[in-house]
Write a protein that binds this DNA or RNA. Structure first.
Lengths: 207, 207, 207, 207
DNA sequence: CATGAATGAGTCTTCATTCAT
DNA sequence: GATGAATGAAGACTCATTCAT
């Protein structure tokens, strides 16, 4: 564990139920403040207040603001990562088209479960601290997706990591656009269908 | 022009040569500071210093920090937007496969010309002020791409806007990942090829 | 309560003893800085410093500089207003000459108790924020004085509000002059006597 | 001429017509900005702009902002002072009642000719720079009024300076209240009549 | 342990004043 | 002389973090 990483760890591992509840409350509060006020106005005091506790208590759980934001982002990334990983494992050895469906569904479900949260965290992910966390997750998922691809009976991939990277990010792009409200009205209803079509076509063509 | 937009307008039109140079210096300095320090540490003082002038001078060109950031983002978006638009116009009436090549190339060229700039601006785009600018650009480009698609002799699209939105963002996703350094080593070399494959496959499959 | 007024409210009600003491210290410090440096140099930092605390603390009690100044002015106006009101109530139904004595004494006592404070606040009262507070006080006192006048057994007033307004301000004028040091040497000793004479003469003559 | 005074003098005596016009424009602009923006936002740049010239030009006429404000206030005080002086001279040797009428009329005419100007300058007069100018004017007028009073055939005054000070300021008080909008609706119409009654009564009673 | 007042460095922004053109 | 861009000190205000209670 590098020195940089150390500073962002929660100060204590939440063993007790109470601590866990507190952490949940803090994460929820962070999302809310992020959504309503934006990253720069997402202050420790405001988050603590929204979570119904004092700033001092917040600092019992996180050594500093960045650690809190990192934890919230990390949790979100973990959820998405786990969902994608499970889908990839489940789809191993299946035909490419099934892989596409599986991946799209898992990703969409994870990302769109709490759209406000997903949206709020883009700003966190874009700032210095978040960058690295997202990178790690991308690397992890690219590997998992690549492994899945290699197990496809009906596909052969020159550079599975490259294909996996495209596969993941060609989903991430449109989903981001939807979450940020950049897409045409009514688009959300077609999202899954389009992404399946997109990914199936790509994986089938990627040979 | 909305009230919010008005506040982000540059304070004066750079008439004189010196003014234009000053604005250029400010934009460059902003990118540098953004890159080296991150959005939250990209302060007006630091930008001015980096640009070799005093804060006061910065404020003669931009009414506030957000306006500066918005201007830098806007300029970047304008470049990308123009490139994409020209490509779409040029590809009108061509087969879908040519459209894909044209779009991918234009987008990549615009986005990767100044990678540091492109990368630095993601954080700006993710914050409150940038959101709207990006949205407008997405809307504009989605329309242009949709129009191009409708002119294809070898394609028929149920919902051209939806297809266009996916088309654009399935490129934006991987490009973003590359710029942010999330992709596997050596990926950049394959980027264009993969995106062409991706987009061609999608547009061909998008009924 | 108007929007403008809301912004000038103290940020928190001083519940604890310490808070009350802090507020007192801030008010005293404000008067001192106002007196020694003038309104434009009465900065939040200087006031806090004078009060023996940091700027941050000041901002825990007042949302902004104007609110601090308004609070100090308000407190002063409240004292004067209360004194005048009590005098007016006490003098109801008394002859006009007694009213004059009562009003003059109450006003002088309130205004001259802390001359430095009274003097320092003229600049605050003259600036945008103070204006309204003073106006409200004048309206309130004019009404109270008018009611008193109407109860006089030996006077009849066409337009009691107008007479009250003159009565109040013909006292305020000379008192202001004294506080600002505009009057001849030795004048202060004669002030009460002259104002009683002035007001008695006016009320007796005011048909 | 004291050192303090020197700094507030206009930089050059406006001999030429053009200069005089410029000074007039600057004074008018100052009043406007003062009225519309308040003292603290009455900046040299804004005044110059309003006057249709550059800041640099303003500094050709006044060495600094305070000098400009002082000059504008001084001019106003000079007008009022001259009006009152002339009235006092004219009323010498006349009965006290005529003196009252003369003084009230002169003062009101001078103060209410440009109500916006009169009002705007209260803030200037209340700040450090203005204080001294107003004091000098008060002293000067108190002397002139006292001299007038002493010439009254039908009055005898113990302490003419004290009486004069009261006389002047018991007019100034209500007039200030009117200009600041503190008085009841319709009060302005009665102002002259009331002030004449007030001053006549006082001077008659002051013996 | 929780609390939340205190701290003061750090931001944004303004503005008097200067001086090169 | 006029201009107005440049300067940078100074002010209002915020907020991460600490620590006495």
């Amino acid at each position: 564990m590098s020195t940089a990483t150390v500073a962002l760890q929660p100060r204590k591992t939440p063993i007790q139920a109470r601590s866990a509840a507190t952490v949940v409350a803090l994460h929820a509060a962070t999302i809310q403040v992020l959504t309503q006020e934006g990253l720069s106005r997402c202050t420790t005091t405001r988050v603590a207040e929204r979570a119904g506790m004092s700033v001092g208590s917040l600092y019992q759980y996180y050594p500093n603001r960045d650690a809190l934001l990192a934890a919230v982002l990390q949790e979100h990334l973990g959820d998405v990562g786990t969902a994608v990983e499970q889908a990839c494992h489940a789809a191993r050895g299946r035909p490419v088209a099934e892989m596409a469906v599986s991946l799209v569904r898992a990703f969409l479900r994870a990302k769109l479960r709490e759209p406000a949260e997903s949206k709020a965290l883009y700003a966190v992910a874009a700032e210095r601290g978040g960058h690295e966390l997202v990178r790690q997750m991308q690397v992890r998922l690219t590997v998992v997706i690549a492994e899945m691809l290699e197990s496809a009976p009906d596909g052969r991939f020159d550079d599975p990591m490259a294909t996996a990277a495209v596969a993941f990010n060609c989903l991430a792009g449109p989903v981001t656009a939807v979450l940020k409200g950049f897409t045409p009205p009514g688009f959300e209803a077609r999202l899954e269908q389009e992404l399946v079509r997109l990914l199936t076509a790509y994986l089938s063509a990627a040979n």
